[in-house]
Design a protein around this nucleic acid. Structure first.
Ligand SMILES: O=c1ccn([C@H]2C[C@H](O)[C@@H](COP(=O)(O)OP(=O)(O)OP(=O)(O)O)O2)c(=O)[nH]1
Ligand SMILES: [Mg+2]
Length: 731
DNA sequence: GATCAGCATGG
DNA sequence: CCATGC
DNA sequence: GATC
């Protein structure tokens, strides 16, 4: 009941949150609580000349995107799956833009490039070949059923009659499978589609031959629309081209391995998948023999990687590893293995249960994307793992990564995870995060896939990758991921408050490249407009000190309204971050209900606006009595940038849950909530609820009954999670 | 093959 | 309802 | 991608 709030005098806000910090003295800086509210000094003069909002970004010049295929049109509108969305990105290289967002990447951004990054026929990139025309240019008709030109075929390449349907991918069907019901209609009735007979008679077989990668699926669709058949199975009698995914950096041997063959017939062309993309781009069949389409004969990994033999790799490993590891390694391995097993045996739920799901493994497509590429590993039966293992919220996440023996592995896997997040592959990204989390917990170095595989949340694919990292000190996929063909404009637009994937894609598809374009040519929602106009401001991180100033100003104003209000700066600030993406402020009051708080919010925001502190609202409660949050922008002084600021009003009874929620981080929250739901609870910003019944699609049927909402710590306790001070919640 | 958190606000 | 954000 |  008593959580420190009740007992202590509410001088300012300190008392309110005393309990939060009382026990976490461990290593969290007292700085943020103790000192913060003692004297809300308001003398804020801008310390130094602040960096002026850089309006240059608005005028960035980029090559015109004129003559390009209309691919983007069709796809911008049709790829609707919010979390799995994708578009074609068969237009490759261009520099990647480093993004500074952290959660945003993790969340689910896919930086598609539905529009080629480079102007197609305007200028030729230095690495771009001058495509040698091996055939007449084929016209491309923009509407289905328009004039088709029979066009002569490239003589070197034998074309073939259309193969039976069952040998081909049914792309529409695959696409529908991956599209939410609500949007299927849109997929079926797609608008303008770029078509041609460019690839008529060509039968493409993809490596990896999986349709689960949405980007690849889109590429397949595109090639199909240009006349190609996309074969579902490897059959030398039908295939004319093998298209190797360039993002995989595979070498020729691996291709053969994937095909389970020792050689590919001469008449079949083996090229990188950028080849057909280029053909489309230039609207003609370019010379496939150009070096840039070659599938390398030797591994492409940097630092002279071993000949990629994962399973029996001990020999290679010894060669490739630094001297010292020679002897240790074997020991380590043995110890580690045993340790892992011993550890595993200690765990609850362990009943030596053997999983029986191995059947799917070797099947062509059933496994998740690209599965077959990863070495066909003998399936070691595997022990079941502790179920609460691998929950991020169970760990102390304070960013203490160093001194971990798996440091390098962690680095690389994290980078991969970030890459997948950027690419909007949310779940894959999450898997990488989880794997990294379990690696962090290891006290010994993981050398082999076999060891890695035994750890929670590390499956075969990641285990293989871990071994590859240890051996080669890198991961081939990452080499590609690093210079991902990100569309600069898309990334720019995704950085606009109020604009997400949908709008960004749409705008890119329309050929916009700068923020100014949006202002001039697009209908923007109110908040999007501000998001565009203030992009340069909002993109900047906020120094902790400035966050504190904003917070103190708000607190002072609030207390002038009602001295009993309790406010706290939340979010990354409470977690002790040196700089923050925005300012999060929670407001509550003893025994207040939502209604009362709502009144406070209105008067407070009105007052702060009148003061000139709040510059605008971006998302504010609709009704009169409901509503709990206020998003807007604030500014301390004219020289400083506008900052994003969020208020959360909280009924007294919900303060514990709200504290938990608003402290985050987001990953931590999701982890706690997932754990809660696995234990039959429901956790949200209002409280922890019990006896929640979930229906068919795991939808909640029963609200559940409130168990705890007042005390943050007790929520931890009930869920069986060791309490984590805010600074340890950076998952 | 389903799941990977749960909710608030704008339009 | 969907998109976007926390 | 991993898990059930
Ligand atoms: O998807 C989300 C995003 C945020 N939050 C919670 C946790 C987070 O800490 C808090 C504030 O959100 P914000 O976006 O401000 O994140 P932050 O943790 O404060 O980081 P930043 O420094 O980017 O503001 O809201 C969630 O629960 N889920
Ligand atoms: Mg924040």
């Amino acid at each position: 009941m008593t959580n420190g709030l009740d007992a202590k005098p509410n001088y300012l806000n300190k008392a309110f949150f005393d309990d939060l910090y009382a026990l976490d003295n461990t290593e969290s800086e007292d700085e943020n609580d103790v000192n913060l509210f003692t004297i809300p000094s308001l003398a804020r003069k801008p310390k130094a000349a602040p960096p002026q909002p850089d309006s240059a970004t608005m005028k960035e010049t980029e090559p015109p995107k004129t003559a390009r295929l209309a691919l983007s049109d069709a796809e911008g509108k049709n790829i609707n799956a919010p979390k799995t969305a994708s578009t074609m990105s068969t237009d490759w290289p261009t520099g990647e833009t480093r993004n500074t967002i952290s959660r945003d990447i993790r969340k689910d951004l896919r930086f598609t490039s539905s529009t080629p990054t480079k102007a197609t026929n305007i200028k030729v990139h230095k690495t771009d070949p001058m495509p040698k025309v091996t055939e007449k240019v084929k016209p491309i008709d923009h509407e289905v059923g328009m004039v088709k030109t029979p066009g002569p075929k490239f003589e070197e390449v034998a074309t073939k009659p259309k193969p039976p349907a069952h040998l081909c991918w049914n792309l529409l069907e695959e696409k529908l499978k991956r599209t939410p019901k609500s949007k299927k209609k849109a997929v079926v009735s797609r608008g303008l589609i770029e078509r041609s007979d460019l690839f008529d008679g060509y039968h493409f077989y993809f490596i990896p031959n999986s349709v689960k990668n949405p980007v690849r699926l889109r590429a397949m669709e595109s090639f199909h629309e240009h006349g190609a058949c996309i074969l579902k199975e490897w059959d030398p009698n039908w295939v004319t081209h093998i298209l190797v995914d360039s993002s995989w950096n595979l070498d020729y041997a691996e291709v053969l391995k994937d095909l389970k063959t020792s050689s590919v017939p001469d008449h079949i062309i083996v090229v990188l998948d950028i080849y057909p993309s280029d053909c489309i781009k230039y609207r003609r069949l370019v010379d496939h023999k150009q070096f840039m389409y070659d599938v390398p004969r030797t591994p492409t990994a940097p630092a002279s990687p071993p000949p990629l033999s994962l399973p029996q790799s001990t020999a290679n490993f010894i060669k490739e590893t630094p001297p010292r590891s020679y002897s240790d390694s074997s020991k380590d391995t043995g110890n580690e293995l045993q340790a892992a097993i011993l550890e595993a045996k200690k765990l609850p739920f362990l009943d030596d249960h053997y999983e029986s799901s191995s059947s799917k493994e070797l099947n062509v497509d059933s496994d998740s994307d690209e599965s077959r590429i990863a070495s066909p590993r003998k399936k070691a039966p595997r022990l079941r793992k502790d179920q609460t293992f691998g929950f991020q919220c169970m760990n102390k996440n304070d960013g203490t990564t160093k001194n971990n023996p798996n440091q390098r592995t962690i680095e690389i896997l994290s980078e991969m995870g970030d890459y997948y997040a950027r690419v909007r592959d949310e779940w894959r990204s999450m898997s990488y995060r989880k794997a990294v989390a379990t690696l962090r917990k290891q006290t010994k170095k993981i050398w082999f896939a076999s060891e890695a595989r035994k750890l929670p949340n590390i499956g075969e694919r990641l285990a293989d990758k871990i071994e590859e990292i240890v051996q080669t000190d890198s991961l081939r996929r990452l080499e590609y991921a690093r210079d991902e063909p990100g569309d600069a404009a898309l990334k720019l637009f995704l950085g606009v408050y109020g604009a997400g994937l949908k709008h960004a894609q749409q705008w890119v598809a329309k050929g916009h490249t700068t923020l100014q374009d949006l202002l001039d040519k697009e209908k923007l929602s109110a908040s999007q407009r501000i998001g565009v106009e203030r992009h340069a401001d909002f993109a900047q991180r906020i120094p902790r000190e400035e966050v504190r100033h904003h917070g103190e100003l708000v607190i002072k104003a609030a207390l002038e309204i009602d001295g009993e209000l309790k406010l706290e700066i939340m979010g990354s600030y409470r977690r002790g971050a040196k700089d923050c993406g925005d300012i999060d402020v929670m407001i509550t009051k003893e025994d207040a209900g939502n209604r009362e708080m709502r009144g406070v919010l209105d008067t407070l925001t009105t007052k702060l606006t009148a003061m000139g502190f709040l510059k605008c609202g971006l998302a504010i409660p609709r009704g009169h009595d409901d509503g709990s949050k206020w998003h807007g922008a604030s500014q301390l002084s004219p020289e400083l940038p506008w900052r994003r600021i969020d208020f959360l009003i909280v009924p007294w009874a919900e303060r514990g849950a709200a504290l938990l929620y608003f402290t985050g981080n987001d990953i931590f929250n999701r982890s706690m909530r997932l754990l809660a739901s696995k234990k039959g609870y429901r956790l949200n910003q209002r409280g922890l609820y019990k006896d929640v019944i979930r229906g068919p699609q795991r939808q909640k049927i029963t609200e559940g009954t409130l168990v705890e909402g007042e005390d943050e710590k007790r929520i931890f306790k009930i869920l069986g999670v060791p309490y984590r001070p805010p600074s340890d919640r950076n998952c």
